[in-house]
Amino acid sequence: MIEVSHLRVAFGAGENQSVAVDDVSFSIPEATVYGLVGESGCGKTTILRCLAGLNRQWSGTIRIAGKTVGPVRDLAFYRMAQMVFQDPYGSLHPRHTVNTILSEPLVVHGIAGIGPRVSRVLAQVGLGESYRYRYPHQLSGGQRQRVAIARALILEPRILFLDEPTSALDVSVQAEVLNLLRDIQVEQGLTCVLVSHDLPVVANLCNRLAVMNQGKLIEELGVADLMSARAHSGYTQRLIAASAGYDRTLVGLDVD
């Protein structure tokens, strides 16, 4: 469904140039969830933004649904691929009601039957009709992220890009959102790309994942390998160990 080969992204020019993504290739089969994992600055979000067409400065080849795509995408592309952002406080318009927020993609794409579609998608994400005319500030963090997911789903896309969809949420709310994402993904056979620094979250949603460090793809793992901590590279092993919590014996103190 998604094929990326020799993707390279660099910011700046000349001496100040920094390579954010360095010769990365991977492919994602249809109806699977693919994780991009790494620490801040490793290039994982940059890759996602290239896939979603939000970042236009890249070289290499990206094929989505069998077609090679360029930096600029057309409307049909966004009908097929939608994105959910990290922070529902920032990604929803504060002065639009849930109804307006959810109708807008339909208006943009010229799709009829807005009313019933909004009701259907609200039910799908577990929010009732009573939430339809509320403003974002009248919703909790989890409910807001449900609205953001509903906005992505209302166009019935085949691909969903998820950028840290639960990292701004409390753990109990995170559980609800993760369960919801899994249900929707299975039900609709969506292809998802999940960017996260949280390995347990990745283990919960993904079928396969790529570990990145300093712009390079270090290794690819299946979820079974991640669950049993079978990683080849030392870096991935360190990430897995660090996600288990604090262990005084694991840490060397002399670091800069």
Partner: peptide, 20 residues
């Protein structure tokens, strides 16, 4: 207990999370 149960764990993989 509910908070602990709602935490995803690496070794549990795709197991459905308990909601508090």
């Amino acid at each position: 207990r509910g908070l602990l149960a709602s935490l995803p764990r690496l070794e549990d993989g795709h197991k459905r999370l308990r909601v508090l």
